[in-house]
């Protein structure tokens, strides 16, 4: 009988090319990702703790500053109340009219032969006044004065009404005009 041999060694199955590649790439990726994760995670813990430390430092600084401010409550109170009052006075005085210059300008009309009987004004500069002029020459001076003020833009919209000539030769009239804002400051 001829000899028969039995081959008991199993044939090695060769891996497919894709599997071969994966067996190389995947372990590398796994190691790199694990190392990276560990490093980044430790760095994040350090970053968080550092931020918490800074936060606590700032908090204690703020507490100190608040205590300091609290101890100066009286100073803050008196200063705040003073500035708020001054602010109101500044607001109000800025918006209100000061008639001193206007009265002075009208008073200047008390020239020779001119007397002011009455005057009135509101805070927008609408002025009305009545004058008596003893003669036509005085009237002339009055008109020159008003024209001069008109030229200097201190008075505008000047109107004369109710001009009455008395038997004695004197004149009484009412004048309305608009005073410039500069006369109300």
């Amino acid at each position: 009988m001829p000899k028969r041999s039995v081959n008991l060694i199993l044939p090695i199955e060769k891996d497919k090319p894709l599997v071969k590649k994966l067996k190389i790439i995947l372990p590398v990726i796994a190691v790199i990702s694990l190392l990276s994760f560990t490093i980044v995670f430790l760095a994040s813990i350090f970053y968080v703790n550092s931020n918490i430390f800074q936060f606590n430092l700032l908090k204690s600084e703020i507490d100190q500053l608040e205590n300091n401010i609290g101890s100066q409550k009286n100073t803050e109170g008196i200063y705040t109340l003073t500035t708020s009052r001054l602010n109101i006075l500044d607001q109000v005085s800025g918006k209100s009219a000061n008639f001193t210059s206007l009265i002075g300008a009208i008073n200047q009309m008390n020239l020779s032969g001119i007397s002011i009987n009455s005057m009135a004004s509101d805070n927008k500069g609408n002025v009305t006044f009545s004058v008596a002029a003893s003669s036509s020459a005085s009237m002339d001076s009055l008109v020159s004065y008003l024209l001069d003020k008109d030229k200097k833009k201190l008075f505008s919209k000047i109107e004369a009404n109710g001009i009455v000539r008395e038997k004695t030769g004197s004149y009484t009239l009412t004048i309305t005009l608009l005073a410039n804002n500069s006369l109300l400051k």
Binding site: F99, A120, D122
Partner: peptide, 19 residues
């Protein structure tokens, strides 16, 4: 009128006058 608004006493503003 000037003294009413010069802060030397109670502050008062004048809105209109008639003399």
């Amino acid at each position: 009128i000037k003294a009413l608004g010069d802060f030397s006493g109670r502050y008062i503003t004048v809105d209109s006058f008639q003399i």
